[in-house]
Amino acid sequence: MESYFKNKWLPYLLLLPTFIILIVFLFYPAFETFRLSFYKVHPFGIKKIFAGLYNFKKLFRSSDYIYSFKISFIFSIFVVIGGLFISLLIALLLNQDLKGQRIYRSFLIWPYALSPAISGAIFRFLFNPANGYLNYFFKAIFGFEPAWLTNGSLALVIITIAATWKNLGYNIIFYLAGLQNVQKEALDAAAIDGAGPVKRFVFITFPLLSPTTFFLLIMNLIYSYFSSFGLIDVLTEGGPANATNILIYQLYRDFFINSKTGYAAAESLVLFSLVVLLTLVQFKTTGRKVHYQ
């Protein structure tokens, strides 16, 4: 192969800035996390005691951590599946020729532009136990006020809804783009052959959307495991009684509040491996069914 550059070192020189940034902000911290997970670390880092697998053993012996695992799993299933289902539905509706379609689109994509803390605050206005807006209506209509955020199961439902809603815009954008790439000819031909709208969706549109769905599946998985921290911090602080304490929140607590550096490093390795594992599983299973045009 013929090189575009005469100087053998020039391409490396041009890549250098990227590598410096990657090393400083990604590889070095990742390596440090790995290393620290084998230590007990003084809160201010002035002392380290090598502890072998102590942190990992402690993690998997902790009933709180196992519970957090379960909660995260339930949470992510609902956020990913529910989120994709709803956004595909909305995208289908938005893909029709409607008057004022652009306005609807902007409104539906809007939540994605909000920061997690802001969306948390919105949900807090709606559901807070002292004077949430929704409680006011609930009392007026049904005569009782559910403890949205102070009942464990309800709080998890609210957090799931909030996290799903927050990511809808992102999913809708990708589905809309996918839908606009579905060839009209194929759909028209199917219609002439007598396929109804449901059949056309199941046999033509959905298979043609499979690369988008697969991409979104993985992005949403990562989102549900890593990016829901802000919502939880604003709404429930992981409570009541750890009911919304998903892995990323426990990690935040252990590092930023409890100052247990080594333990938190171990947690972050576990979380990282878990998400890598789930992604691999998806590639091996769902990934094979993806149909690329």
């Binding site: 136990p129 002292a130 004077n131 102070t150 602080e237 009541p240």
Partner: peptide, 16 residues
């Protein structure tokens, strides 16, 4: 009344 954690809800409940 269980208002959950944080320093805003209990003040709000009293104020309203």
């Amino acid at each position: 009344l269980d208002v959950g954690p944080g320093w805003a809800n209990h003040r709000a409940a009293f104020g309203s």
